[in-house]
Amino acid sequence: MNSIKLRVNGKEVTGQVEGRTLLVDFLRKDLRLTGTHVGCDTTQCGACVVHVNGEPVKACAMLAAEADGAEVATIEGQANADGSLSVVQQAFQDHHGLQCGFCTPGMVMAATALLKENPKPSEAEIREYLDGNICRCTGYHNIVKSIMAASGQDVPAMAAE
């Protein structure tokens, strides 16, 4: 077993993990932070995206032991201190950026990482960035609109397809 100590959503946590324990399993089973979803477990769907030291990472493709000493952010830590939704979360609600909601934690974490790196992305840049996040419901258009809105850009100006 490996002893790990990391910060998750700003709080210090410790744990004992096997070598093979995935970061996503540590978050969901040990910390009971079940907002991070496992869609495929084969590194393709992006439902498990969290931030590790500020960068988006698929938590099903990283060992918990690799997160020792890291700063991890999950969907549970995205809301503002007063409990109101983050700008990205609110935009997903306002623009119907979700239907069943399964992919949403990963989408929100990916979108938040994108806007940190590129505060005013074009529609094409958003679609390119979401390469690793699969949604079975929305057809992506409302997700892209939500991210455009979250970045303060005009949504109706987007081309309809």
Partner: peptide, 9 residues
């Protein structure tokens, strides 16, 4: 390469 999450690791 891959997608942004793959490129982080």
């Amino acid at each position: 390469i891959g997608d942004p999450s793959v490129r982080s690791r």
